[in-house]
């Protein structure tokens, strides 16, 4: 794998949008990895939470957009709570999701969920799922 770094890449618009929407400074993260160490969903993720930030820092947002990780983040705030630098990664995840869905449409179609699931889930799960997986 080879990443070609360039000024246009590391300063690209997508990254600026992520910073603006999330209110987070991506370069504040010093890649300690504590977010990934405590993330309850990390075991199922294809890239680690800290790598989401790392790739954004390098302008490699395409790799982030392709990842499962942003959809598996449960917004549990564990990472933000413990981050030694106070980076709110859950806000960054949300900004990436929102930007992606603005362009490519919703991630899930509520009507297409299995009827059985629909009947059983508490309201809360739909409403928050709707908020996270649709634009």
């Amino acid at each position: 794998m080879r990443i070609q770094l360039s000024a246009t890449k590391v300063h690209n618009d997508f990254i600026r949008k992520v910073e603006d929407m999330s209110g987070q400074d991506l370069l504040k993260c010093y890649q300690c990895g504590e977010c990934s160490a405590g993330c309850p969903a990390a075991f199922a993720m294809d890239i680690l939470p800290n790598q989401v930030i790392r790739l954004l820092q390098l302008g490699e947002h395409e790799a982030v957009l392709k990842s499962k990780t942003i959809w598996l983040c449960a917004a549990c705030q564990q990472c933000y709570t413990r981050c030694p630098k106070g980076v709110d990664l859950s806000r960054i995840m949300e900004a990436v999701r929102d930007l992606l869905m603005l362009e490519h449409g919703d991630r899930i179609v509520i009507e297409k969920l299995p009827a059985e699931t629909l009947a059983e889930f508490p309201q809360q799960a739909f409403i928050s799922g709707f908020r996270k997986y649709t634009a």
Partner: peptide, 13 residues
């Protein structure tokens, strides 16, 4: 975390 809303996306996780 118990998995929160991601049940709607990935039940296994």
């Amino acid at each position: 975390c118990c998995g929160n809303y991601i049940a709607a996306f990935d039940l296994e996780t």
